Amino acid sequence: MKSGITSIFKSYLEPKKVYEGGKNIPVSPGKKIYKLSSNENPLGQSPKATQAMIKASENVHVYPDQTDIRLRRALVKDFENQLDENQFICGNSGSEIIDMLLRAFINEGDEVIFSNPCFLPYSVFSGWYGAKQVDVPLLEPDYKLDMEGILNSITDKTKIIFLTSPNNPTGTYIPKVEVDEFLSRIPDTILVVFDEVYRHFTDAPDYTSALPYVKNGQNVIGINSFSKTYGLAGQRIGYGYTTETIATYLRQIHKPFLLPLTSIEGAIGALEDKVFIEETVKTVNQGREYLAQEFDRLGISYWPTQANFFLIDPPIPEFEFTERIMELGIMVRPVSQFGAPGKVRITIGDNEANQALVKALEIIKPQS
């Protein structure tokens, strides 16, 4: 029986699974370790972002912008004026935008639909607000969206549906024709969250972002991050774009002085650095092609990807594989926690890192 302060604890905040982010590189003097576990930018960070943050650091003794308006205006320019500044909402990472949505739309007992394997915060964060979590798993073996399964799971308590394209950790995407059909069958009382933080790396001709649906006035929000393409994972900054009605509603819970000054300036600088963005995408796409060829040569099972990482079926048990390849200087991510037991996610690195990965796999594979 609860007593004292515990008697007013929310029952749905009882101890449960939590999201554990990727680990940092351990200290190993004299040993080169390639971190291919957190989907970070293989080239580092945008030089223009670095310059902007260094300049901003001279003024961190004063409060930052009270709102995100300057960054929103920079995003309007980045989106080639296809959206208005009032259609954007910014926060401390894409994850915080997800949290903001849940705070704004979810009451205890409401339902949230997601499809494992997927980004764990969808379930963890929704649990913070007492949501009923409805998992409609992706269809194996290709990890495709179970459209009919989701539609059949919708009730009058469904408030949010999470779609991710490309999906983390599978790297799979939802073709535009399927998104079109899916959204045409969703009640207008539901918000569809389109997590597209890896969109810059896609080259499939039938890929779509959330943009056409937002422009069409549908209840969709596109979630983006500056952690991947722009190399600002350490600055924790992200944004969403949606209809003006939804964005204006969300701004009611947007805290003043929310974004650090260095994050604001770094993000604005990163948006302007088109050369760095192009080089990042080129590096990832070339690495993606190279690793796919090497996986084929080595007989490593993997899923075709539209992101900056691969999901593989390792030749030995996942945790044994993770430990063994770490001994060879490569950090990778087991993704049982994401709903893909037995699988491992590997970030695409630069040429040196990718070649080191292949050499490590050549050592491990014969032992399978």
Rank of each mutant, 00 (worst) to 15 (best):
Q367C: 13
E279D: 09
S225A: 07
L151I: 04
T262K: 09
T245W: 10
H200D: 09
I154A: 03
S115G: 14
S57K: 08
E181I: 13
V220Q: 06
S7N: 08
A292N: 05
M326Y: 12
T245V: 09
G349F: 00
K23N: 15
L101H: 07
E178G: 13
F257T: 03
E327R: 14
F319H: 14
I300R: 05
Y198L: 09
N86L: 12
M331R: 07
A131E: 03
T242N: 04
G109C: 06
L101C: 05
P260I: 00
I186N: 00
N86P: 07
E58S: 07
T208R: 04
M331K: 03
E352W: 04
S225T: 15
S301L: 08
T229K: 07
R324A: 13
F119D: 06
P141Q: 01
S209P: 13
S46Q: 03
T322R: 08
N39T: 10
D110F: 05
S95C: 14
V60G: 11
S209Q: 02
L43A: 04
P256H: 03
T172W: 13
R333I: 11
E244M: 06
N107W: 14
Y249Q: 13
L361I: 12
Q367Y: 15
P26N: 01
T305I: 02
E278S: 01
F257D: 03
F226E: 00
G217I: 00
P317I: 15
E181M: 09
F276A: 03
L211G: 05
P169S: 01
Y213M: 05
I186C: 00
V358N: 02
I364G: 12
D203E: 13
E196K: 08
I316C: 02
Q87F: 12
S57L: 06
S126K: 09
G21K: 11
V193D: 01
I346F: 00
V27H: 14
V214N: 02
G329M: 02
F338K: 15
Q82K: 12
N216D: 14
Q235N: 13
K359H: 07
I106M: 10
L71P: 01
G217R: 12
S368E: 10
K23Q: 11
G130N: 07
Y239T: 00
L36S: 05
E327L: 14
K215N: 11
T229V: 15
I312G: 06
I223A: 05
K31C: 04
F125Y: 14
N224K: 13
S38A: 12
T189H: 10
D146M: 07
A131M: 04
A353I: 09
L232F: 05
P26S: 03
P121S: 06
L258S: 05
K144W: 07
L163P: 04
D78W: 15
P166I: 00
I348M: 02
N219A: 09
V335Y: 02
P317A: 07
Q286N: 13
C118R: 15
E178C: 10
D84H: 12
H200G: 12
S225P: 07
D135E: 07
M326L: 15
N219S: 09
P42V: 01
E323T: 12
Q355E: 13
N224D: 12
F88L: 03
N86W: 05
G240S: 00
A360M: 06
